[in-house]
Design a protein around this nucleic acid. Structure first.
Lengths: 209, 209
DNA sequence: GACTGTGAAGCCATTCACAGCT
DNA sequence: AGCTGTGAATGGCTTCACAGTC
């Protein structure tokens, strides 16, 4: 893949396109145009074509794209042609919800380990995964070849567990805690900040009052 | 407020700055420079100053910003000088977790109503809020002056409950379902797509293999 | 000397518009 | 005629760099 720099926004849209295509497959639709996709996900058709153009030529001029074929390409591009083991740190309300979230499993993300510090939570089951003490973190990451960690601990503990994940050799972290985390450059970090999202809404609502 | 167009990225950073300032207040720090903030949240100091400049001049040249003062300005700008009632639609795993999430309450977002279609969930308590049937949605929105709705239902039900929220006069929607929702222009929509976030990570990990 | 506020420059993403296929 | 792929134009956000202020 000769890839210089793909905008993150493009990657996010590819993920959305791929889910839309999945819908079309379920509906038995076999061919789709960039305009159809655009209408389906709420972007412009030029945007769809540009996004795809980063990775190759997948369509046929005058016709469009074969749905199953394009879907396969997108899944490959997104790295979803393989399953990913992930470790979840923090088995509180949010952590438990994510551990049981169907949407992850559907896309090939398998929560293979859940750890927590709270003795009351250790030993409980989330689906078929048992909550383990945080001391097993390094061992599990190694033995299960886990590359992605999800942080769902309170803000005060977030940097500490992040350091543990980094030390264990994790490659990417999805952070749900409302804290700015420091990680080495080699580790990919994404933040899903629930409050920030609500605050963007309240900002916009507050604008016109 | 004479505001032309504030980049969304700016609004999101303001939210992060405000939380950082809150930390500083807890630590008893009274003055801060744009460089301090920049280091604390991982952006450039020019970025911090530009973001603030959209809204006025809050600092003193040669000195910096008064922490409590700047914090107050940011909270006002973000619309957090008032409490917001929010309605949560869908009391499944994720919905329950969000209903009980402390981070919302801390920032003045009060989950005042939770509704669901599942009879088994109706009548159960999430903290001090009782899950009610979806039929009360319109009534609750009106009587409690709710302007923000949070959608945490399965993808298949997402558009239907969104239509209900829009019809009830909701002003902004935070969507956690993996579906692209259609809303009228007057309604503000934000998506928190959990799978998309993981897929951006897997994309980046898959790049170098 | 230190730090803010800001015009200008640079950079990156989106949109336009059309040539090229089918 | 319809739709893709793409260079060029546009628009918008970020970084630079410095004048202004304490």
């Amino acid at each position: 893949m000769k890839v210089y720099k793909i905008p993150e926004a493009t990657v996010m849209r590819l993920s959305v396109y791929s889910r839309f295509l999945h819908q079309l497959i379920d509906e038995g639709i076999t061919t789709v145009s960039s305009g159809d996709i655009a209408r389906g996900v709420g972007v412009s058709s030029a945007q769809v074509r540009k996004d795809l153009a980063y990775f190759g030529e997948f369509g046929t001029r005058g016709v469009g794209y074969r749905v199953d074929e394009l879907y396969g390409h997108l899944m490959k591009i997104l790295g979803l042609d393989q399953a990913w083991n992930i470790i979840l740190v923090g088995a509180g309300k949010l952590g438990s919800a994510l551990a049981l979230y169907q949407g992850f499993a559907e896309r090939g993300f398998h929560v293979s380990t859940v750890v927590d510090v709270d003795p009351k939570r250790i030993g409980t089951k989330l689906g078929d995964v048992e909550v383990e003490p945080i001391s097993v973190l390094q061992e599990r990451v190694k033995e299960k070849n886990i590359r992605v960690g999800v942080v769902t601990v309170p803000a005060s503990a977030a940097q500490d567990v992040t350091d543990l994940l980094v030390e264990a050799g994790i490659k990417a972290i999805l952070n749900f805690s409302p804290r700015v985390l420091k990680v080495p450059h080699r580790v990919i970090l994404r933040n899903v900040d629930l409050s920030v999202n609500l605050e963007v809404l309240s900002f916009n609502l507050a604008l016109n009052r």
